[in-house]
Nucleic acid binder design. Structure first.
Length: 506
RNA sequence: GCUCCCGUCAUCUAGCGGCCCAGGAUACCGGCCUUUCAAGCCGGCGGCGCGGGUUCGAAUCCCGUCGGGAGCACCA
């Protein structure tokens, strides 16, 4: 059996969202696990929607996730080009051959007429698909339409009866009746190819052996199958490839089989879309989710290994993934669970690693520079072990330790009201004085000083730690106090304690 | 309207006729620990959409029903 060839083919409009990323991941895992090839193809046949910025964003998001491609934009490959906007002549050649073979016909309705027809059909309770009005035009009729200035689209003649069925790697046998499948457009009036044609032509031309995509395309499959058959009939595709100057398909090419993945839905059970807030991969990156966690989590959105395992390294996923174990029901993209997994992964990072991953987020928040100053790097390294148990995403660290980087403390008025009052006046004054007299400024000496003040004033440790915490950080939720203070400059700490005295109300 | 797909705790998922009066994870609740916030440990809550069959036995098979989703574009 030849090595599998799979592909991910996003339409470059908008950002790569998690649903698309999941599709890309499954294809990638499948290819990597079986020594196959993963092809990235950009489906930008719709010039109105496709943008370069979107394409670059998608490429960047895939790279962030660690999904590399063997053929595609930026890396090339033997069956390119890999942007459909650069393959127009091929599609035109195929459409032409299809027309000569009478597999497609020219239809002259305008978009408005079709919309009206659709509406009418809906109203009458009929299926809104094309009814086949221009299936058998005479040459006179054609001339008349042409004379009116109309340009035809090309539609495929679909069978009027019979059944199609195919074996889906996820769903088993699926079948449709041809009578339910209307003649569909393969070439627009402006001569460009639609998704159906371009997608089918490229999958066949690139020797794709398995098409794994979202379930929303399940009912498009019969049309694809028809096209595959038409394309391979009498070497049509091979001739078109040769005639229009594109690379021949792989010698061992087979026609694609299918795997339809369940949809990813939001909390309202509707398929994920921009309406659901942040669903873009890049947004998750900004929020501080680790790529290996996203990969692990995405793998679990539809696939499972056994009853109890759910933490996998990328290598383990590559080894274990298979479409047989992809479920058939839609899965909810549960960010709470993602957070938990991300938090667990952060706990596995050592100080250096965590600090390195934290730095870009601190930079984005305006706390440290990029690249960081040596002192900033050192501070972050010191903070890393204190943060590890307390954050679930890298961005969670920002509010927790911002005070360690900023000159101005941001006051949490609730915390101030609760702790900077009463005995806090004596506490802050005593601690400030005691800190000034400390020999070595380190965790042990800070702890001893704090505990000493508590004993001296006859107060519980909470009555001492909390006011000090608020005075230095502005809030009552921070990493452990002595450990944090020891990382700061002593003079800064003392200055803040004294400044906080001003805010005390009795 | 028609076609296709799906239906196990709040959420994701294991289950493919007896191992299941249903297992794991997240979330939630409680306890311990504690200088805050966390983390950790221990414990708890909680589900086979419904109705018929088939069978000694059904979450698992069949039929029906209800519910959800997708598609039916000169968008992909």
């Amino acid at each position: 059996m030849p090595a599998p060839r799979v592909r991910f083919c996003p339409a470059p409009s908008g950002w790569l969202h998690v649903g698309g990323a999941r599709t890309a991941l499954y294809n990638w895992l499948y290819a990597r696990g079986r020594g196959g090839a993963f092809v990235l193809r950009i489906e930008d046949t719709d010039a109105e929607r496709a943008t370069d910025a979107s394409m670059h964003g998608m490429v960047a998001a895939l790279r962030f996730l660690g999904l590399d491609w063997d053929e595609g934009p930026e890396v090339g490959g033997p069956h390119g080009p890999y942007r459909q906007s650069e393959r127009g002549p091929l599609y035109a050649a195929v459409a032409n051959a299809l027309l000569e073979a009478d597999a497609v016909y020219d239809a002259y309705e305008t978009a408005e007429e079709l919309a009206a027809e659709r509406e009418e059909a809906q109203r009458a309770g009929r299926s809104p698909g094309y009814a086949g009005g221009h299936r058998d035009l005479t040459d006179e009729e054609r001339q008349a339409y042409l004379a009116e200035g109309r340009r035809p689209v090309l539609r495929v003649r679909t069978p009027d009866r019979g059944e199609v069925s195919f074996s889906d790697a996820v769903r088993g046998t699926v079948s449709f009746d041809w009578k339910d499948i209307p003649d569909f457009v393969v070439q627009r009036a402006d001569g460009t190819s639609t998704y159906f044609l371009a997608n089918a032509v490229d999958d066949v031309a690139m020797g794709v052996s398995l098409v794994a995509r979202g379930e929303d395309l399940l009912s498009a499959t019969p049309r694809q199958l028809l096209l595959y058959e038409l394309l391979s009939r009498e070497g049509l595709i091979d001739r078109a490839l040769a005639d229009s100057g594109y690379p021949a398909r792989p010698a061992d090419a087979v026609l694609p089989s299918f795997a339809h993945l369940p949809l990813l839905v939001g909390e309202d059970r509707k398929p994920l879309s921009k309406r659901h807030g942040s669903v873009a991969v890049d947004e998750f990156r900004r929020q501080g989710y680790l790529p290996e966690v996203l990969v692990n989590f995405l793998a679990l959105c539809g696939w499972s290994y056994d009853a109890t395992s759910e933490r996998f390294t990328v290598d383990e996923l590559v080894e274990r993934f298979g479409f047989e174990r992809v479920g058939r029901n839609p899965s909810f993209f549960d960010t709470a669970k993602l957070r938990a997994m991300n938090g667990d992964r952060i706990k596995e990072l050592d100080d250096r690693e965590l600090a390195e991953r934290l730095l870009p987020h601190l930079d984005e928040a305006g706390l440290a520079g990029m690249p960081p100053l040596p002192a900033e790097r050192e501070l972050v390294l010191g903070l890393a072990p204190l943060l590890r148990e307390r954050i679930q995403t890298l961005a969670d660290a920002v509010p927790l330790v911002a005070f360690a980087f900023l000159d101005e403390v941001t006051w949490d008025e609730r915390a101030v009201a609760k702790w900077l009052k009463g005995s806090a006046r004596d506490v802050l004054a005593a601690v400030a004085a005691a800190f000034e007299g400390v020999g070595d400024w380190n965790v042990e000496s800070v702890t001893a000083t704090l505990d000493g003040v508590a004993a001296e004033l006859g107060l519980g440790t909470g009555k001492v730690y909390q006011p000090v915490r608020v005075a230095v950080s502005g809030t009552d939720r921070t990493p452990p106090l002595p450990e944090t203070l020891a990382l700061l400059d002593r003079a800064v700490v003392v200055r803040r304690l004294r400044a906080a005295l001003e805010r005390i109300v009795d």
